[in-house]
Amino acid sequence: MLSLKNISKYHKAGSLKTTILNNINLDVDAGEFVSIMGPSGSGKSSLLNIIGMLDEPSEGYQYFLNEPVHQLKEKQRSALYKKNIGFVFQAYHLIDELNVYENIETPLLYQDVKAAERKALVADMLDRFQIVGKKDLFPSQLSGGQQQLVGIARALIVTPKLLLADEPTGNLNSKQGDEIMELFSKLNKEGMTIIQVTHSEKNAAYGSRIINLLDGTIESSKNI
């Protein structure tokens, strides 16, 4: 599904060059559930952002669904990720002014989906995550776990091929976290490709492969 070849990322501040990612090579196949681990500052999130095309690498080649991402223009890149990638964040990042229903509906609005179809899709999603009763509530009225559920529902509404999650349970207590990880696991079994960044060994274990990062390089990669 995606392939990174010799990907490096560094910042230059004056004469000081800070390397964030150093010569990363990574292939992920469809249907995999990859967990990226590593201490703070090891480059986990940067790697995830590059995979999600929200950020550009300084060097290297990147392919996504056989498209050479490093050759694409900004516009084409964003079109590619909008259609194929769903994002889930540690801080949920719901839109505060929109209620649950509208938060989930928004991506469809941007893709010009017809009203009737939108209604059906959102209703399905609410049903699937068992949050129908919460559809008129605003993010501030929900618990963290519920907010993250909405976040995931929003990511999935456009049926992406790849789900990227940056510490999805980082702000949750262990019970809520477990529920989210169960959900990921279920989604993966239904065929969704997932890449998550996590600090927790336990959560990493839900995946099919664990990649350990240290100081911007892949230290180890093991299948479970």
Partner: peptide, 16 residues
């Protein structure tokens, strides 16, 4: 900026 960023990530065009 947070709201705008989220909207962009979940698919908003600049025009929209």
């Amino acid at each position: 900026s947070k709201e705008v960023s989220i909207r962009k990530i979940i698919g908003a065009d600049r025009k929209q």
